[in-house]
């Protein structure tokens, strides 16, 4: 046991580096993906049929294609189309597309949860469409969408482990490399999963607390 602890201590800096890289990829793809998801959530309700159809296609492709396939397309596929990306850029791009598609559905659900009476009150006050969206519908809809968005963010962080497949030196790649050079795969992978758990379990608990708080606020 003390032998394993010793190994873990020795590997820890390298694995933490991998975890940090995963966090960066997750953060960047969410920073790009969530605003895009918001745009898609709005265009899916647009008056223009073309815009609506285009949105549906993007969302369905983004959700229908496994993240692993999106990653491989971005890293191995795009060069044939003349665009060569680093493993980091390809990871961010692929996960951002995935995040945009999923969060657009989450945000759309939040916007739809805003009571019809709220929109009617804004209309009756003579507010413009844009003001109604900006001051009345978005603040309430995004508050509803916040817990599931945070939950999804945790999923994306876990999803960065897939970037292993395109040589990104994130946590799982590092654990695998340690395993390959020491033949101690099991302890290396166990430590990697403990590190994921150390972030994801408290984060999920936090989301749960937030969900109950917001729920209480809205019921009042």
């Amino acid at each position: 046991m003390s032998e394993i602890l010793g190994l873990w201590l020795e590997w820890l800096p390298r694995l933490l580096g991998g975890l940090w890289l995963g966090c960066k990829v997750a953060g960047l793809s969410l920073i790009l993906g969530i605003p895009l998801g918001l745009v898609l959530a709005l265009t899916v309700q647009a008056k223009s049929t073309v815009l609506r159809a285009a949105t549906l296609v993007v969302v369905e492709i983004g959700r229908g294609t496994p993240a692993l396939v999106l990653l491989q397309l971005a890293y191995f596929g795009l060069p044939s189309a003349g665009l060569t990306l680093s493993a980091m850029a390809a990871s961010v791009l692929a996960l951002a597309v995935c995040a945009a598609a999923y969060t657009s559905e989450i945000i759309r659900g939040g916007l739809e949860a805003v009571a019809a009476g709220q929109k009617e009150a804004a209309d009756a006050l003579g507010m413009s469409r844009l003001d109604k969206l900006r001051f009345i519908v978005l603040p309430q809809g995004l508050a509803v969408a916040l817990p599931p968005l945070l939950g999804f963010s945790i999923t994306i962080l876990q999803g960065t482990s897939l970037c292993f497949a395109i040589t990104l030196p994130e946590l799982i790649s590092q654990a695998y490399a340690i395993g390959a050079s020491t033949f101690r795969y099991l302890p290396a992978l166990v430590l990697a999963s403990l590190l994921y758990a150390a972030i994801c379990i408290p984060a999920s608990m936090l989301v749960g607390v937030l969900e109950r708080r917001l729920g209480a606020h809205h019921r009042a």
Binding site: A115, E120, A121, A124, G126, S128, Q140, A143, H218
Partner: peptide
């Protein structure tokens, strides 16, 4: 909007903005 500017409305369920 021009029409609504002249008309105030009060609803059965108040519809205040909770946020």
């Amino acid at each position: 909007q021009k029409l609504r500017r002249n008309v105030g409305m009060v609803f059965q369920s108040f519809n205040l903005f909770p946020h």
